[in-house]
């Protein structure tokens, strides 16, 4: 990945101050699907924030991760509306089918399974999001189809 070029592009979108930190991390995360460790020092210098505080912020917010995510990210919404409509069962099935726990990525790097605490599409509960696509009224049996399209 042409990390350096992208990073400069991202940094210059924001002023050199602490308040830019989270926005910068968002953009890096979007560009690389994770926060490459080697970029963090540059971000620290650019924003004038000690590296330790950059990592504190990066690990506090669940939007960021230092581990690369899979090609397909499957998010299972665990909001209350989804919960009362059986989101737990979907999560259990997805974990069983992929052989990983929520928050993990399959060994081949194809799938990352995540849970998310409500995306505000509660009328479609229970909800599963594959990359950016929303699937409402989801049933555990629908997972087979979803995992096939992800391949």
């Amino acid at each position: 990945m042409a990390t350096n070029i992208n990073l400069d592009d991202i940094l210059t979108r924001y002023p050199e101050e602490e308040a830019s930190l989270i926005e910068i991390l968002h953009d890096i995360q979007a560009a690389h699907r994770h926060l490459p460790r080697e970029t963090m020092k540059t971000v620290a210098e650019y924003t004038g924030v000690p590296l330790s505080r950059v990592t504190a912020v990066a690990t506090f917010y669940s939007a960021f991760s230092f581990e690369p995510k899979g090609e397909t990210v499957i998010k299972i919404c665990m909001g209350t509306a989804c919960h009362v409509k059986g989101a737990n069962l979907i999560k259990g099935e997805a974990e069983r089918k992929l052989g990983i726990k929520a928050g993990q990525t399959t060994k081949d790097g194809k799938f990352t399974l995540e849970v998310v605490n409500c995306v505000g599409a509660c009328a479609m509960a229970p909800l599963v999001i594959q990359n950016e696509q929303y699937y409402g009224k989801f049933k555990p049996v629908d997972l087979d189809k979803l995992l096939r399209t992800g391949e």
Partner: peptide
């Protein structure tokens, strides 16, 4: 950044400041 606690006003302001 995906943190429920940031709905709390003082946490939200820290978050805008670029902090935890």
């Amino acid at each position: 950044g995906g943190a429920f606690v940031c709905g709390e006003s003082s946490a939200l302001m820290r978050s805008i400041e670029g902090k935890v």
